[in-house]
């Protein structure tokens, strides 16, 4: 799980790096060594800053909505960031993989988003700053009918509004 998260995290970081420095050929093609904190990084307090430097998503096991210690660490970083930037609100999007029925997955996505929201609230974040929405299996993050894609789609993503 940790490895998967890191690879996604790194990929997001790489994407961001490419966007901010399109001519920097050195940053392309080497995901493993992508520098997460480039000097010309995202603006602090921005959605990009949150996604790149904090980590915007937590992953779940199959048909699960419990948060592992690792995922709690991600949410603790999110809470720390949200305390720094009090004017920011987030929507937590809950998702499910395609290996369930549509209606049940809508409920499961809601349960995952709620699990992430509840943990942030327990860390002192005002519940008024957090909304949730479930997309069930309708808006997959990763395409492909394979375990790797499914793991990325069992997710709650905090989107800065």
């Amino acid at each position: 799980m940790r490895m998967k998260f890191l690879s996604v995290f790194a990929a997001v970081a790489l994407l961001a790096a490419c966007e901010t420095a399109p001519d920097s050929g050195a940053n392309t093609g080497n995901v493993g060594n992508a520098s997460v904190t480039t000097p010309a990084g995202p603006t602090p307090g921005s959605a990009e800053d949150f996604a790149v430097n904090v980590g915007d998503r937590v992953f779940f096991g199959f048909d699960q909505s419990t948060l592992t210690t690792e995922e709690r660490t991600v949410l603790e970083r999110q809470a720390f960031w949200l305390r720094q930037y009090q004017n920011v609100a987030v929507t937590i999007e809950g998702h499910a993989d395609e290996r369930g029925t549509r209606e049940y997955n809508l409920a499961l996505g809601e349960r995952r988003a709620s699990a992430a929201r509840d943990y942030l609230v327990s860390l002192g974040i005002n519940p008024g700053r957090i909304s949730t929405i479930s997309y069930g299996e309708e808006r997959p993050i990763a395409v492909g009918s394979n375990e790797e894609a499914w793991a990325q789609n069992r997710v709650a993503i905090s989107v800065v509004r």
């Binding site: 909505s65 209606e103 809508l106 409920a107 809601e110 349960r111 699990a115 509840d118 479930s134």
Partner: peptide, 26 residues
């Protein structure tokens, strides 16, 4: 107050049965 989904009409058409998800409970 939460997401409503999975609707179906009753046989006489006078009601809709559906689910509401809120706070992780449906």
């Amino acid at each position: 107050p939460g997401m409503t989904f999975a609707p179906r009409f009753s046989p006489d058409g006078n009601k809709v049965i559906m689910s509401m998800a809120r706070n992780g409970v449906t």
